[in-house]
Design a protein around this nucleic acid. Sequence first.
DNA 1: TAAGCAGTTGCAACAAAGTTGCATAATTTT
DNA 2: AAAATTATGCAACTTTGTTGCAACTGCTTA
Lengths: 139, 139
Amino acid sequence: MENEAINDLLKRNQLSVTDSRKKILDLFLKNSGALAHSDIEKKAGERFDRVTVYRTLQTFVEKGIIHTIPTADNAVLYALCKDECSSGHHYDNHVHFVCDNCNVTYCLDEVVTPEVKLPKAFKPKVIEVVVSGLCENCN
Amino acid sequence: MENEAINDLLKRNQLSVTDSRKKILDLFLKNSGALAHSDIEKKAGERFDRVTVYRTLQTFVEKGIIHTIPTADNAVLYALCKDECSSGHHYDNHVHFVCDNCNVTYCLDEVVTPEVKLPKAFKPKVIEVVVSGLCENCN
DNA sequence: TAAGCAGTTGCAACAAAGTTGCATAATTTT
DNA sequence: AAAATTATGCAACTTTGTTGCAACTGCTTA
């Protein structure tokens, strides 16, 4: 079932289908929120080698399978990309939401980043928006 | 001259006026852009102890003298707050701009963060906007 | 389906970033 | 100017991230 989807996703990105990659991808699929490196490393049941986790996440980012989320406290977070992300180029124009209470980070894919009017001399390329507050569950 | 201003700022925040604090504050005043921890630690001329830099920055953030800036590559950046920031509470509703070319980070104090429409269930408190692209000098 | 190749993993060793306790030194208070 | 308070810097440590290399796994093709 989902196994098929995972295999497909990996193959579509010219990645060999390995245990670690399947397990890490599975974690993302089963988690609605974003994951920190440490979440993955310590994830119940299986322990992955630190180096493998670093390299897997890096590979996934390069292939456009996941993207990083900047946070105010500078923890590195990762979340699945929508299909539109292509290799090395993230169309990451959605808003991220961090809950102050439960600390979960959401990708609000349906909320598009607003326009920002800058001084003329600045040429914007990417706009990152991170909102914090109370999420749907903690409200 | 500026020395007065620095002393005042520290005293106003109930901080004793020490060499390290004066020098680090001075760096911020002389730099239009944001500073990374390492910028401060290695700053030409003077070398500060790593621990002192960590503790000084932490104190300044707590007092509302400086604020942190979230970045895409998760480097920790600090910049001076406008006067409105009070102890422990940052009114940090301006846009940050990171130049892809010269890598300088600007606080665009005059650019106010736009409204973002979230799903009803989410209650926003703080909105962080980080724009990257080409700055006024690299344009 | 077995052999061989390329890509992936995990270990070890290292480098960088950040933290803590404590004795010393500097500021502030009286 | 001495006492009290606060900040500094060292040492030792923890956490986080990186690199090289040998062993292994998944992929290809014959």
